[in-house]
Design a protein around this nucleic acid. Structure first.
Lengths: 128, 128
DNA sequence: GGTTGACTTAGAGCTTACTCTAAGAGCTAA
DNA sequence: TTAGCTCTTAGAGTAAGCTCTAAGTCAACC
């Protein structure tokens, strides 16, 4: 499948459920960095790339914009001296997400009450 | 301020924190319906419009796309016979939102653990 | 050896939800 | 009265995050 067991872009795409187009796009904007190439210039990916993209996906599912994910990637590239800054980036997003979840949960509670009203109304209608 | 106590678009914009542009846009796409006009064609809004737009805002904060909100508005326009459909629309979104909150909460838990690791690492670094 | 798939750059197109501008006309509020 | 608001239609621009195409080249696999 992949010579020497290397993960090519097609395979990586399948493993991560991210299109090859998007993978190249992520590399272009700096979310993916230092992707290895073979002699003929084709990308090959490692398990570290899979781990990293998994983390990126989680950040995205948490609603972090790509711009901030790229910022995190930039800091990560600079090494351990940026730990505190990276921690801060995550912590700031945690606060945003906690507020978002709180708001969503409140709305969820209210909408469920509204649904109960609908159910009562529909039942009353059926009874005539 | 507004002759006869009517709420004009500017005032409505302030009351709802939605720009006049967006209000016209919402009317255009059918999220706002049957907005009253005075003799010279200027919109005036009622407390019912404020209530409705408040509901729209809540649906938006729950992540419901405008397309579905418009669908809800269409059903609402048709009267009480559409109660069951409207209920279903809300219920479907409740399921989506519950799944989203569950995923976000899981990620939040994981990211908090990562932050604790960062804190340990940073503390170890400081200790030398 | 031929089909498939990889590479590159550059740029267009898509979706959602606005956001704004123009142009020309007509009201409203202080 | 007059600055500023409102109306209309139509369309362009913005932002994020893709998504895809073109054009030309070259490598990989059967």
């Amino acid at each position: 499948m992949c010579l020497g067991g290397f993960i090519n872009i097609q395979h990586f795409s399948k493993l991560t459920s991210i299109s090859a187009h998007t993978i190249r796009y992520y590399e272009k904007i700096g979310v993916l960095k230092h992707i290895a190439r073979n002699a003929s210039g084709h990308r090959f990916f490692t398990s570290k790339d899979i781990d990293w993209i998994g983390f990126v996906k989680r950040l995205k599912e948490m609603g972090m914009p790509l711009e901030n994910i790229k910022l995190y990637a930039d800091l990560r590239e600079k090494g351990e001296s940026t730990s505190a800054l990276r921690k801060q980036l995550l912590q700031d997003h945690v606060v945003i997400l906690e507020e978002k979840i709180a708001l969503e949960s409140l709305h969820l509670k209210n909408i469920k009450e509204k649904i109960i009203h609908y159910e009562r109304f529909i039942n009353d209608e059926l009874k005539g």
